[in-house]
Nucleic acid binder design. Structure first.
Lengths: 203, 203
DNA sequence: GCAATACTAGAGCACGTACTCCAAGAATAG
DNA sequence: CTATTCTTGGAGTACGTGCTCTAGTATTGC
């Protein structure tokens, strides 16, 4: 017998590869990134790459799963008695903070357009569903409490919040004058305006 | 001498190919679409394809140019004395109507993430710039007239309107319950809320 | 009718890709 | 030290891609 795995080193290498892939995907897109490029960026050989990830797609799926888990954990950490609207706004803040690394926005944009690969689409759908199911209950409670408008269903409102978040990410990725840090307040303001009860709007 | 080109037939064929490409790109993305697939969809051989478009990329550029021209023409058709805010809302309406063909939203989403091809990126940047330069003057006038909020610059406001439009397109492409027709009013409402002067919001 | 040109199709090519394979290095258990 | 297993790099491979080439067919001017 010999050589039991050192899980720390293994995980560290994995993270190096994931980080390199994040950089490459953000700049050249998924299809536009070759495994050779990832290896170069990570400073490894192709044998090593495929030792850690059986396929290029599995690497992408692993990264997406990280993101989905992160979202799940964030919402799991909420206490039931928190102020609903404050939770929604805290999530926006959380997103804006994560996106202070502009590679992430680029990555999200690049990857959300990967089409025709069943498993990737499923992972994206799952990610989107986890986010929706994390957010909607809070918006629903805020709605019941009269904190947000009642003329649209909680589901519709949630979808519109997600829509704004997606647009936000897209802008960060495309427009270099538009940074998450600088536009954080504008994001909060935009969502507040979107959700405000009709009684708070005068004509 | 013989056989001068029949421009009508030529153009018609071009449009058939463009239409087929639109369908394919919307479903499988740009990189995910093979020229063979476009040929199959259009019912032609690969020889014909490359007779009309020298490269796959040139086909994409031609489609993007169509869109850019369309945007330019739409704004060129505005009269200087139109109500500024009404023009903005008319453009939203125009977009929503165009996107009643869900392929278009899918196409936009798929193609906006094409990265690493200099000419495509330039075409996308141009398209985005034409839209920005079309919209911003009207928002600026509306701002000067007090129709929209003054706490953000006209440029920032325009960028945020574009952000919402992008998010809107993304949703249509991804969420089949979210249709342009059904959400047209919500789009108008969202942008109105985004632009409303602060004095129209009570706390 | 005849020549000249535009158009069409599809077999095939050159190339770049994801991925395989193998041989050697490093690290531990006994 | 030795045996065993995990790990590593890079040469090589099978395959799919965008694109070319050629040969044949339609369509026009004269």
């Amino acid at each position: 017998m010999a050589r039991t795995v050192d899980p720390e080193k293994h995980l560290a290498r994995r993270l190096v590869i994931i980080d390199a892939a994040l950089t490459c995907f953000a700049v050249h897109g998924y299809a536009g990134t070759t495994t050779a490029a990832i290896c170069r960026e990570a400073g490894i050989g192709s044998g090593t790459f495929f030792h850690y990830f059986p396929t290029k797609q599995s690497l992408l799926l692993a990264i997406l799963a990280y993101g989905t888990d992160e979202t799940r954990e964030w919402f799991a950490a909420r206490r039931p008695d928190e102020d609903p609207l404050a939770v929604v706004e805290a999530y926006l803040d959380h997103t804006a903070e994560e996106m202070s690394d502009p590679r992430l926005a680029g990555f999200v944009r690049a990857v959300s357009a990967v089409m025709g690969e069943r498993e990737v689409e499923a992972a994206l759908a799952l990610d989107s569903q986890v986010l929706l199911e994390g957010l909607e209950p809070w918006i629903s409670r805020a709605r019941d409490a009269g904190q947000v408008r009642g003329d649209l269903s909680a589901h519709d409102l949630t979808v519109w919040v997600l829509l704004v978040i997606d647009g936000f990410l897209g802008r960060i990725a495309v427009d270099e004058d538009f940074t998450a840090a600088a536009q954080r307040d504008a994001l909060l303001d935009a969502v507040r305006r979107l959700l405000a009860p009709a009684t708070q709007l005068v004509e």
